[in-house]
Design a protein around this nucleic acid. Structure first.
Length: 423
RNA sequence: GUGGCUGUAGCUCAAUGGCGGAGCAUCGCACUGUGGAUGCGAGGGUUGUGGGUUCGACCCCCAUCAGCCACCCCA
């Protein structure tokens, strides 16, 4: 066995087939983003570590970021998320931008963690944010974008659900249950883990972190209360707009949704596959009203979400929703009859391109059957032959591999003839 | 960072501790001006790596690396 230098752990190679899928995903989310009037932008892949230090979760920065010292001694991170960069970009031009700002982006991110199903170290992420307004209706818009994206790629409300909650609502309830400020994050984490543990284990864990029996009972009641949203004016307004936009089938209140990142302040939401085997969240986001001020800008309300490419791809595969693509852009293969015909075949291919046809010329003299086989394998539809017979009559032979038909055309009108046959 | 499972041909997988095989793929030929189909044939391996046990190891033991899966965390 030859030794092939291994790829970096947790990275993926995108062969043309996979690249076509990624591009399709990109185009799908572009379509939805633009239908809501959002503008595409991009941030640097490298940022100072400082940018993430205060705002992101501690684990994300200290354990999961790729960090290195550059030649000047600065600490640089490969971006593990986009939101801090967005906040910086907004803060820098806060007085020039026209608000509300609606921006989206799709690009690579890096997190150092153990690769497993649904998780890689290098992944692509769709980020979309609405900055300026603080209304619950703007939260609803982001939820609607997510729902419309699912619709766009063929995921129905039967398969996919967006669960919505509100951190302020939960915090006021936590107050009533007497959770002190110190154990609040622990309780959030406890809530987050509820779906992953058996109820006995979850309860044992709750006592372990210091909850009293009555607090646990209260928490369980709280998390079971599917009507709790009625007590949050924000959520009442959000669901009203969700309803008016006709996407309520995709959206559901769930008091168990808390989200790990520290900067969320109000509405939070997370989408899951509900009928398939993928347990990880497809996308997640929420309102983060303090982040701009935290990176040195004026305080600015923001709401947004992020979706990684890995989990959504798993879900789409599971439902057979990933289209197959012809990855060869060539419409025509020009064969090379023999060594002497090489320049002429290359000339014909050039003429075809000039005429607006994507054309490959077989790059060396080979048996014709081998060249035809190549066209067949590469799913190139048309094969052109220029041999002695054609040349003497100033013609070309055109074979349609899909139809199995063959005809001759004037050499000078080859591009036109090919286009007619393709139409 | 913790735990579990798996490493055999390009791919998917066989092989009681006793001569490492098959299917698919590749290449050639039938088919010297035409793809798919069929038939025949060929090439391809230090069994992840290093050590140990044994007369003998793909098989048992130890280590190591890699992949997958779960935990942690999260898109």
């Amino acid at each position: 066995m030859k030794k092939i230098i291994a790829s970096v752990k947790g990275t993926r190679d995108f062969y043309p087939e996979q690249m076509a899928v990624r591009t399709w995903l990109y185009n799908s989310l572009r379509k939805v983003s633009e239908s809501f009037g959002y503008q595409e932008y991009e941030a640097p892949f490298l940022e100072t570590l400082e940018l993430y230090a205060a705002k992101s979760g501690e684990e994300l920065v200290k354990e999961q970021s790729y960090v290195f010292e550059d030649r000047s001694g600065d600490m640089i991170a490969l971006r593990p998320e986009l939101t801090p960069s967005l906040a910086r970009m907004i803060a820098q031009k806060q007085n020039e931008l026209t608000f509300p700002v609606r921006w989206w982006s799709f690009g690579p991110f890096w997190r150092y963690e153990r690769p497993q199903k649904g998780r890689s170290r290098e992944f692509f992420q769709w980020n979309i944010d609405l900055l300026g307004p603080s209304s619950p209706e703007s939260d609803a818009e982001l939820v609607a974008i997510a729902a419309n994206f699912f619709k766009q790629i063929g995921l129905s409300p039967k398969n996919t659900r967006i669960y919505v909650n509100n951190r302020r609502l939960m915090e006021s309830r936590f107050d009533q249950l007497g959770f002190s400020a110190e154990i609040r994050p622990i309780v959030s984490n406890l809530v987050d883990r509820r779906g992953k543990l058996s109820s006995e284990k979850w309860e044992a864990f709750a006592y372990e972190v210091g909850l009293t029996t009555s607090q646990l009972a209260g928490l369980k009641d709280l998390l079971a209360d599917k009507e709790l949203w009625r007590e949050s004016e924000d959520l009442v307004r959000l669901f009203k707009v969700i309803d008016s936009m006709g996407i309520s089938e995709y959206v559901e209140f769930d008091p168990n949704i808390m989200r790990g990142l520290l900067y969320y302040t109000g509405t939070v939401f997370e989408a899951f596959d509900v009928t398939g085997s993928v347990r990880r969240s497809i996308l997640g986001g929420g309102r983060y009203d303090n982040l701009l001020a935290d990176v040195g800008g004026d305080s600015l309300p923001c709401v947004g979400f992020a979706m990684g490419d890995v989990v959504i791809s798993l879900v789409l595969q599971e439902y057979g929703l990933v289209p197959t693509f012809d990855t060869t852009p060539a419409q025509v293969l020009v064969t090379v009859f023999s060594e002497e015909f090489l320049p002429d075949s290359f000339a014909l291919a050039a003429e075809l391109r000039k005429g607006g046809v994507n054309a490959i010329c077989y790059p060396e003299s080979q048996k014709l059957n081998k060249q035809f086989k190549y066209a067949d394998r590469m799913r190139i539809r048309m094969v052109l032959v220029v041999g002695p017979d054609e040349t003497s009559h100033k013609q070309v032979t055109i074979k349609d591999l899909v139809q199995g038909t063959q005809q001759t055309a004037e050499r000078a009108k080859a591009a036109r003839a090919v286009k007619d046959m393709l139409a």
